[in-house]
């Protein structure tokens, strides 16, 4: 779309002062939004308006705005990161919306992701799961040659696909059960596919699953909404890897 089309939008945005506030949807109008803007830039325009009117701007998480940091976290019309597949909401452009459209913007909804303010949620549950994963054994001494450890191309690709996870939490937000299994599975299978991850492979799976269960996430029921909204398009095959590793480790088998 090359022309400088402008959109007038009606936004229903979740406003919540703090964790104790019950929160509510508030309706705002933004005029003259360029189709070349990103979704977050459109919110910046709204916040300029609100500030000029003496109102409190809408709080939302963002950082790199390049789709790689995992900070932005908006549910747009019920879909985390919005309607465009394989895209973070910061990389979602307004050309995907129509003039006069109504857009509902909500935070990630999960007990394990409490709302801090407006559209900002606390995702430190993910950090605690990562911590539970522990370490990867490496030999001390001189750094090894980069090519000293052969990794089959297929395994390297699978590990990189899983490692693409930016930890944004859209999988939890999209899951009908608010389950974190795609995130945890991405982290587990990323190391499980590489030789460096083998020594602690079993303990890591057990410890990360235990940490995930403690945080109050729901349990996967194989509906694959997570895969559909993941901005890095991580496959639910990683969940199969996690299931296999955890069951094997739990049964004490090889």
């Amino acid at each position: 779309m090359s022309e400088n089309k402008r959109l007038n939008l009606t936004l229903h945005i979740w406003r919540q002062k703090n964790a104790a506030d019950p929160g509510r949807l508030a309706t705002y109008r933004v005029q003259g939004v360029s189709v070349h803007m990103s979704f977050l830039e459109m919110l910046d325009v709204l916040n300029e308006q609100l500030t000029a009117q003496g109102e409190e701007p809408v709080a939302f998480d963002h950082d790199c705005r390049e789709g790689i940091c995992g900070m932005c976290s908006l549910t747009v019309n019920g879909i985390p990161h919005g309607p465009q597949r394989g895209t973070t909401v910061c990389q979602l452009h307004m050309r995907h919306f129509a003039d006069g459209q109504e857009i509902t913007i909500e935070p990630w909804r999960a007990k394990a992701f409490p709302v801090v303010r407006d559209l900002v949620v606390d995702r430190s549950a993910f950090d605690r799961i990562i911590q539970a994963g522990g370490f990867v054994s490496v030999n001390t001494g001189g750094s090894p040659d980069g090519n000293a450890l052969p990794v089959p191309k297929k395994d390297a690709e699978a590990a990189m696909d899983a490692a693409a996870c930016i930890g944004c939490g859209a999988c939890v937000a999209a899951c009908k059960n608010a389950s974190a299994m795609l995130f945890v599975a991405a982290k587990i299978s990323h190391l499980a596919k590489l030789p460096q991850g083998q020594p602690e492979r079993r303990e890591r799976a057990l410890a990360m699953v235990a940490a995930m269960d403690q945080e109050g996430f729901g349990f996967c029921s194989n509906q694959y909404e997570c895969e559909a909204v993941c901005p890095k398009e991580i496959s639910v095959r990683t969940i199969a890897v996690m299931n296999r590793d955890t069951l094997r480790a739990g049964l004490g088998g090889a």
Partner: peptide
């Protein structure tokens, strides 16, 4: 229990 506050706008992609 894992989602005490439901989405106001419910949507489903591929379930």
């Amino acid at each position: 229990a894992a989602r005490p506050v439901p989405y106001a706008f419910q949507n489903t992609v591929q379930a």
